[in-house]
Design a protein around this nucleic acid. Structure first.
Lengths: 330, 330
DNA sequence: TTGTACGCGTTATCAG
DNA sequence: CTGATAACGCGTACAA
C-alpha cells in the first residue's frame, strides 16, 4: 500500500495525500475522503522512504555492552526518559562486550540511519576514537572520558580513592582487590588506581598476589574470590570493582568458606539495588547512572537540533553508601 | 558521498560501482580504480536507500518490556546467538511495560523497516492480537501462548502446579502467594492457577487475604511481603510469581522482621543466578529462557527466508531447583 | 487549494 | 562486461 494507491483510491493526487498526512492545504471534502480510504486500507506511510527524503528520523541509537546489567538499565532509563519527552524513539544494540560489534552497530546506525548515537563505552580502542572523530552524525559517549569528544562520565577515580580511604581506616589489615581489565579506563584503571591511592593516604599497601582481575560477571568474581580465599587464610576484606563481582565474592564465601563469613568484608561499586535488598547492603559507591543517561541524551538532542560548536565533557559525582556507621541501624 | 560521486570520480557508471559493491561483473582495472576511490573517500553506501530498493534489511527487531531483567537478557542472548550465526543484526526496543509503546515500536519496526519482529510479551491486548494478525512482516511471540500465531512459550501452569505440590507437601501450614496481574496469562494467570491446583492436589488451600498482587519489581515485592508479614504473624511460606518479587520478600524479612527469618520460607520462579549466588538459592523454577530465544529466532528466520505455510506454537519445559533435599548440603 | 514533476541513494533491467 | 535508465515511496517547489 503506497501513497499513490491511496491517492488513486481517493481520487486525488499523491501530493494531496502527503499534505493530508503532514498538515498542509487540503480541502475539507478531500480530507474526509482521504481519511476514509486510509482508515479502510490501514495504510501506513513508509518511514524509510520518508527518511530518505527528509534526512531525519527522530530516532536515536544506543550501543550498550550488555543488557543484563542494573547499571546499564539505569543509564538507558535516563536516556529513554529524555528521548520520550522530546519525541524521539530509542533503538538499542547490544554487543556482548565485543568491540568489533560496537563498531558494526555504530556504522549500522550511522547509515541506516538514526539522528544520533549514544555509546555506553567500556573499552575505547583506536578504531573507536577514529570512528567517533570521523562520523557524520552526533555521538555522545557515556561512562568513559574522551578528551575532545562529547562525553558524560563518572568520577571513578575520586570515588575509588574515598573507598580506599575508608578501607584503609577500617582497621582491616589484609586487603585484597578484584578489578577488571585496565583497558577499561574508568572501571579498570580509574577505580584501581584510586583505590590504591586512598589506601596509600592511610599508609596502607596491598600485598602482592592479592590483586586479581575479573571479567564483568558474577561467575568471574566468584572464581577470583575463591582463588584469593583458598590461597590466603587471613584475608580481612575484598574490595571489588563492581557490585556484580562482589556478588560473586559473597557467593564464594557463603558456598566454600562459610566458616570465615564473619571475618571477611566485601565492598563494591555501583549500588546494586538487588544486592542491597538481599544482603542488607555492602559498602559501595552510588554513581548517578540515571543522571548520566539524562545528561547524555539532553546533550545529544541539543546537538541534533541546534548543531554543535564545541565539544562538551561532563563529569558526575558520587556517594559512598552502606558504610559501617549506617549499618549499625540493623 | 553517494554512489554517483564515486562513479564520477572513478570514471565509471554508478551501476558499475553498485556491481563492485555487490559482487557483479566488473573488469579488473575498473575494480581497482573503484576500490581506490572508495578507500580514499571512506564512502559507505546508504543502507537506507538500498533497503528501499531491495526490500530486505537483514535486521530483526526485538520488542522487550524492560532490560533490567535477567530473564529477558537470557532470552535476548539466545536470540542474538542465532541471529549472529545467520548473519542478521538485532535491534532492541524497550517499552517499560507500556502496551502502547509496544504497539508503537512494532509499527516502527514494520515500516522502518526490519525483516521480522520478535515480541517478548507480557500482556496481549486486543490491539496486540489485531496488529500481529494483520502485520505484513513475520512476527514471533515469546513468553505467551497465542493460538493461531507463531509463539514460543513456557509451561508456566505445569511448573507452578509442581511447585504447588512441593509447597503443599512441605508441611507448611499457612501459605501466602504474591502474584502479578492476571492480564499476564503466563506469569499472572498460569502460575497462580497452577500453584493453587498443586496445593489442592495435596488437600491444601490458601486462606483469604494471603494472596497479593505485585508489579514486576523488587520494590513491589517488598511492599506486598511487608503487608503480609505485618498482618499475619503466623505465615510459614511465601511463594512468589517471580524471583525478583521473591528478592523483595527476602528484603522485607531481613529488614523488618529479622526475628522470623528462620521460620519463613520463600519460593520463586525464574532461577535468577544473582539471587542464587548471594542467598544460596531458594526453591525456584528454571525455565529455558535462552532456549526460547534460540527457538524463537530460528523460527523467525525460517519464516523470513522460506516463507510460512502454517503457524507454529512451541511449548518448552521446566525444572524445579533448590528443593529441600538439595539444600541439605549446606 | 491542487497536481505535476523532480530528487533522495540505491539496485535491477536491458540494450549495447 | 558496461552504462543508461527506470523503479523503490515519499516530500515539496512550482506552476496552475
Amino acid at each position: 500500500m503506497t501513497i499513490k494507491e491511496i491517492a488513486r483510491l481517493a481520487g486525488v493526487s499523491s501530493a494531496a495525500v502527503s499534505r493530508y498526512l503532514n498538515g498542509g492545504y487540503v480541502s475539507e471534502e478531500k480530507k474526509e475522503k482521504i481519511r476514509e480510504i486510509i482508515e479502510k486500507t490501514g495504510y501506513r506511510p513508509s518511514i524509510q522512504a520518508r527518511n530518505l527524503r527528509t534526512r531525519q528520523t527522530r530516532l536515536v541509537g544506543v550501543v550498550v555492552p550488555k543488557i543484563s546489567s542494573e547499571t546499564i538499565s539505569r543509564v538507558t532509563d535516563g536516556i529513554g526518559k529524555i528521548l520520550q519527552e522530546k519525541g524521539y524513539q530509542m533503538l538499542l544494540a547490544t554487543t556482548d562486550n565485543n568491540p568489533e560489534k560496537e563498531l558494526e552497530y555504530m556504522e549500522l546506525f550511522e547509515n541506516y540511519p538514526v539522528d544520533g548515537v549514544i555509546l555506553i563505552a567500556t573499552i575505547l580502542t583506536r578504531k573507536h576514537r577514529k570512528h567517533i572523530r570521523e562520523t557524520k552524525i552526533p555521538i555522545v559517549v557515556i561512562g568513559q572520558h574522551l578528551e575532545g569528544e562529547n562525553c558524560v562520565y563518572h568520577d571513578d577515580y575520586g570515588a575509588a580513592k574515598e573507598m580506599g580511604i575508608y578501607v584503609g581506616k577500617s582497621g582491616k589489615q589484609k586487603i585484597a582487590y578484584i578489578g577488571v581489565t585496565r583497558e577499561d579506563k574508568a572501571v579498570g584503571t580509574g577505580r584501581e588506581d584510586g583505590f590504591l591511592s586512598g589506601l596509600a593516604k592511610c599508609g596502607m599497601k596491598m600485598k602482592d598476589g592479592l590483586r586479581k582481575e575479573a571479567k564483568f560477571t558474577m561467575e568471574s568474581g566468584y572464581e577470583k574470590a575463591f582463588e584469593l580465599l583458598r590461597d590466603n587464610s587471613d584475608i580481612d576484606i575484598i574490595s571489588c570493582a563492581t557490585d556484580t563481582i562482589a556478588a560473586g565474592a559473597l557467593e564464594a564465601i557463603q558456598k566454600d568458606f562459610p566458616e570465615r563469613k564473619g571475618s571477611i568484608q566485601i565492598t563494591g561499586f555501583g549500588d546494586n539495588q538487588f544486592l542491597k535488598a538481599v544482603t542488607g547492603g555492602i559498602p559501595t559507591v552510588h554513581f548517578g547512572y540515571k543522571t548520566s543517561g539524562v545528561k547524555g541524551a539532553e546533550l545529544l538532542i541539543d546537538i541534533i537540533e541546534n548543531g554543535q560548536d564545541i565539544s562538551v565533557q561532563m563529569k558526575l559525582g558520587y556517594e559512598i553508601k552502606n558504610l559501617q556507621s549506617e549499618k549499625k541501624r540493623e
